[in-house]
């Protein structure tokens, strides 16, 4: 039984987790043009890389990422290399998650970028643990998703919603939104964010030590349940 659990843990840690993160990297920049229905792959803008860097620091400060468990001199080179790639995938997945909910251009691009950076910067000085950080990120991305794909996309609607007409009247001559995208873009973004949150649950260690897997299940917290997925130096010894 422990052999099976061990193998599953290894599979999740070395194969499933990087796959999830890289899928976010792939989908985070994918848009579908409203008119031609063609794919557009947008690489992460500089501001999303900066946001991802701030988020990485936040992960470390909150203890969501315990770097000494991921990269350690005692671990074999193969394990360190795999972990390094996973961490890189996490960084770019974070950047693409921001890219996914950031308006592409116009006034709102600037506003969203500023708000992301401001939130991440102020969070650097707040007391966080892994669980609270995960919830905070879910709220941050959830809010940005709703604003971009539900409210702002209405501004681009060909029929023109009342919100669109009102905003166009208030901000005459100012480009507030970017190019129009098909509704499929919102679905793709939703899937990308869902996968990102799922991957974060696999990455983050529990806020409190859980002594056994049964106890973890009793806690009913997905974060706690992932205790066994985090790299432990003793697991990685061959």
């Amino acid at each position: 039984m422990s052999n099976i659990a061990e193998r599953n843990r290894q599979l999740l840690h070395f194969i499933v987790l990087p796959t999830l993160l890289l899928t976010v990297v792939l989908l985070g920049g994918l848009r579908v043009d409203a008119h031609t229905k063609q794919f557009l792959f947008l690489p992460p803008p500089l501001v999303t890389l900066l946001s991802a860097a701030l988020l990485a620091v936040l992960f470390l400060r909150a203890g969501a990422l315990e770097l000494h468990r991921w990269l350690a001199i005692e671990q074999p080179l193969l394990v360190n290399a795999a972990h390094l790639l996973t961490l890189l995938a996490l960084f770019f997945a974070s950047a693409q998650a921001f890219n996914s909910v950031l308006p592409e251009q116009g006034l709102l691009h600037g506003m969203f970028s500023f708000l992301f950076l401001w939130t991440l910067w102020t969070n650097q000085f707040a007391a966080f643990d892994a669980r609270r950080l995960l919830r905070s990120l879910m709220v941050l991305f959830g809010t940005a998703f709703v604003l971009k794909h539900l409210l702002i996309s209405g501004l681009d609607s060909p029929k023109g919603s009342w919100l669109g007409r009102l905003t166009a009247t208030v901000l005459q001559g100012v480009s507030i939104t970017g190019p129009g995208f098909a509704p499929a873009t919102g679905y793709i973004s939703f899937v990308a964010l869902a996968i990102y949150v799922m991957a974060l649950m696999l990455v983050m260690p529990p806020p409190v030590e859980v002594s056994s897997s049964s106890e973890a299940l009793l806690l009913g917290d997905s974060v706690a349940r992932t205790d066994s997925l985090n790299p432990r130096p003793e697991d990685n010894q061959n």
């Binding site: 070395f14 990087p18 193969l78 790639l85």
Partner: peptide, 16 residues
């Protein structure tokens, strides 16, 4: 373990 680790590493590189 080693097979899974190598597979994971190779798969991650190919996917990336």
């Amino acid at each position: 373990k080693r097979v899974i680790q190598i597979t994971g590493l190779v798969w991650t590189i190919i996917y990336a």
